[in-house]
Design a protein around this nucleic acid. Structure first.
Lengths: 235, 235
DNA sequence: GCGTAACTCTGCACACCGTGCAGTGATATA
DNA sequence: TATATCACTGCACGGTGTGCAGAGTTACGC
């Protein structure tokens, strides 16, 4: 056993406080000082547990992914091994993939600004690897060969994270009341084009109703389904 | 004409300095103070041009998107209008979509940490709208009906941005030399699982070579192609 | 049993951040 | 020419991540 006094906190306690802060006050409120004071100790004491704020954020990502629970591993196709995957295996794999995508989105949108966490580093923790492994299994159960499964697994993660990115970008803007003036400044900045009316873009105007629903679960599901169509489709 | 002294700077000059900073020192270096000093004036003077740092960032997004140049509008299918789109129109639409996706990615990856820009607010500037309109046109040229085109356009943007997100997350980590210790802390944080060897995930291990190429243009193109398969496919 | 090394945690400090506010000087209009 | 309006400066405030020195606690080798 190592010398020195015992630690007064567990990493789990720290992460819980961090997530409380994230949910209550948003991503910007997750500061070293904020978390530390929430735990009743000095900011620098936190550096005993995590070598940097970034490491803290990465720990949060893992903590989140630990709650993913990818379900049973692809035992269904373990029987059929190298044989041609039956259509039942394909359907099961696809169902599991959609469920994973939805669950992942749910986890990430549940905490405002979770995207900032993911951008704190690559997804290479054990739980992230577990997710990747499950995705690979599912895609192979759906009939893909190994290398394509790897690409497909990455593509699916890309889609989910991109979805979160655009969603949170829009969510941020809603909290800001100064829409018009901000936009005016921003567009004036480009020089040439003044602020253009929506009517200038006829197609965009006619799809306004659809665009308003872009962040809904239904349209997220639609997008994932189309992506899966392309990924595990005939070609 | 309004009273008061003339402005000494144009918005374009400000944005140029901001982009220089972005490319040279990364997203974190794009600070109000940094940009201001690069222009030879006081931080608060910048607030004459932009009401907030966020407005500056949004201006940068528009500046970037202005260089997108979506090419000629879908004049090819304007002739055939409501008639069934010929397979030539489909191919042309698809080609244009892929080109747009690649160009967008190129623009965003060209500047390190451009994702932070996009997350500064929704993509609702005139140039973003122009992009959206072009995407809608192309998807309709490829045979989609209006509402599906809207969903597809959003899905494609989601994919491109997600791709950038994961890419920049990995790029950030490469600049950090303290890999092992950071990771150790992060994974210890989850409590249960210690740092697990790659061998624990057999499929991930076998796809390591493929995963190493995830951020390449080739695999980005592969993903977009699969997405387009699903979006404009037979179903 | 005791020194010693290792460890946690505090206090202070630094450089930086976004931005509000008051003041100064230039400028076009009445 | 007086005045309102603008660009811009200087100062200040409260916040950020984190490096460094020291104080106190603990387990191990002698």
């Amino acid at each position: 056993m190592r010398p020195g006094p015992r630690r007064s906190l567990t990493h789990a306690e720290i992460l819980d406080v961090a997530f409380d802060l994230l949910e209550a006050k948003g991503f910007a409120a997750v500061s070293v000082r904020g978390v530390a004071s929430g735990l009743g100790l000095t900011p620098t004491a936190l550096y005993t547990y995590y070598p940097s704020k970034n490491a803290l954020l990465r720990g949060m990502v893992e903590h989140l992914l630990a709650r993913l629970d990818p379900g049973e591993t692809g035992a269904t196709d373990a029987a059929g091994e190298a044989g041609a995957p039956g259509s039942a295996g394909v359907a099961a794999g696809r169902t599991r993939l959609l469920a994973l995508a939805l669950r992942l989105r749910e986890l990430l949108t549940g905490h405002a600004g979770a995207l900032g966490l993911i951008m704190s580093g690559p997804l290479d923790g054990p739980n992230a690897m577990r997710l990747n492994e499950t995705l690979l299994e599912s895609f192979m159960a759906a009939g893909l060969e190994l290398d394509d499964a790897a690409r497909a697994a990455y593509a699916l993660q890309v889609y989910v994270l991109g979805s979160i990115a655009l969603e949170s970008a829009e969510a941020d803007a809603e909290s800001e009341p100064a829409d018009a003036s901000d936009r005016a400044f921003a567009t004036e900045a480009t020089g040439a084009t003044l602020w253009t009316d929506l009517a200038t873009f006829p197609l965009s105007e006619r799809t306004e109703a659809v665009a308003a629903q872009h962040n809904s679960t239904a349209q997220f599901t639609w997008g994932v389904q189309r992506l899966l169509d392309g990924l595990i489709g005939v070609r």
